[in-house]
Design a protein around this nucleic acid. Sequence first.
RNA 1: GGGCCGGUAGUUCAAUUGGUUAGAGCACUGGCCUGUCACGCCAGAAGUUGCGGGUUCGAAUCCCGUCCGGCCCGCCA
Length: 608
Amino acid sequence: MSQPPMSKSGAPLDVMGSLRRSHHCGDVMKAAVGDEVILAGWVGRRRDHGGVIFVDLRDRTGIVQVVFRPESAPEAHTRAHHLRSEWVLMIRGEVESRSEETINPNMPTGTIEVNVRELRILNSASVPPFAIEEETDVDEQIRLRHRLHDLRRPPLQRALQIRHDLARAVRESLSDQDFLEIETPMLARATPEGARDFLVPSRLQPGEFYALPQSPQIMKQLFMIGGCDRYYQIARCFRDEDLRADRQLEFTQIDLELSFVGVEEILTVLERVMVEGCRACGVELEAPFKRITWTEAMSRFGCDKPDTRIQLELVELTDVFMTSEFKAFRGVAEAGGIVKALPIANAKELSRGEIDRLEKLVRKELGAKGLGWIRVEDDGTWKSPITKFLGEPELAAIRERCKTEPGMVIFFQADVAARANTVLSRLREDLGRRLGRVDGREWDPLLVIDFPLLEDDGEGGLTHVHQPFVAPVEEDLALLDTEPEKVRGTHYDVVLNGVELGSGSLRNHRSDIQRKILSIMGYSDAEMEASFGFLINALDVGAPPHGGFAFGFDRWVMTLARTDNLRDVIAFPKTQRGQDLLMEAPSAVDAEQLDELSLRIRAQPKSD
RNA sequence: GGGCCGGUAGUUCAAUUGGUUAGAGCACUGGCCUGUCACGCCAGAAGUUGCGGGUUCGAAUCCCGUCCGGCCCGCCA
């Protein structure tokens, strides 16, 4: 006969035997006082008084206090002295109501406790690297390395619950709207366009590679051509680009596409999915959503995904400085750049030192050339390092457009449009939040429409703003031949609280228009054939008018979970350098594996 | 590819700015304790100061390099 297994501390371990859980820890209130319950979970806090011992037993649903009394269960009580954090228990006992003075109002199960009759120690556990609690101040690196402990914390458990609830609601909503869930291959063809591909070497075709899909974009268009009418998928996507707080190498999209529709029908679907998805997570949104054109968003907020709860807005001054004596600003305006201002009323708390810090921030982090500012004193006089360069027309324009008043601070940027907007938009968000210039709404859904189809590629040509298959709006078709940079695309974004949750468009379903657009972007016929021949030829099979949308699922969950870090809502996320600290991926592989794939590792060249 | 911030005990931080044996809270270990819920009390253990080099009589502290984490720009669109 073998001895029962022992825990590290010498306490013998038990088997579950035929004992099975009757309730979850958080659901014990569903049992009546006096009922016998069987609970299972992990040891949270343990309070050993020598006599009576309290253990907070925890599972996914919550925490309940279980009590070991020497008089009611001597054996269980004796063994309970050995219990340590994160040990795995199963207990049998009676639900008892707590006396008035021992009720804990801070926990949902605080009016009752479970008097233990039988204890089964199912497993011991190594000492946890940090406490499993609601709040933690532990370094994220530690949390990622010990993800199993971190996952036990309530915020992570809640995030996974939101993922589930949202995915389920979205499936239901789209199914109700006659969408068909269809899968697409993960081993796909490499694409020269867009993000860097993750490549998968082929064993059977030595020297050739699959690519993991950046998104099912082309494949879902093929579904439309294939007569599937309405498709959706909760699809994993892969992009080998640098990570951010809101970007991971692999992420999940709610991808959908439908046939014989215009933009309005797609937006109707989108809004319904948004409303029903959010509702499943306890958030009510009102449809239809506010709409703003891309041009207006850039002008007023300097950003194509504005959080419109922030009450600050930018002011255009480019025209004023076209004729200014102030050479620094005039030069920028004449060279095609922009001059804009961010006026902030009642900004006395922005001290000179604070403004200096902001200037340093935007110069170092955002590459700004500087940060012009004016402060309007109580007596109405202006304090500023730049006003001495300004003539009366500019001063008047600033007064009028910024509606200057005592206590106001105005920030200025004169730069190429992209950078000036980036800088002022960042200041708008940072200062708007810090100074509490928000309108108090918790949720701010917004549709951004009328994106331009094409933009300057920085080398004298034009390139697509989003992806090469976006259809132009019909009334702008003629402009393709004359002023292609003015053509509006049918592209739209949906933004929630300043987070871009997704985007979509109508696609080109006629190969002649698709070819024309590609040719404007500088593709020769041969290049078109090489890069997009497959799709263009597919259009000629008889492609229906179609369009669709894709939500960034993780970002949506992130927003609903009220965090700004994607790693908080993904079970096993990667660090900014693309590593999984728990499973230690990526990793080296055996020479034999490489050999089978016809691969050889070249010594890392020294970069100089 | 670039900018900025950070790395000291399991963990969160400190170390009088280059000077004795690197300290404290929590966690941990042992003991005591029958109503706690951040239980309490007593005692104890715990360190390659990320790593490598340099300067110095002396480095956690200064310099160079490197690795790791975070935020951002580029990139992703």
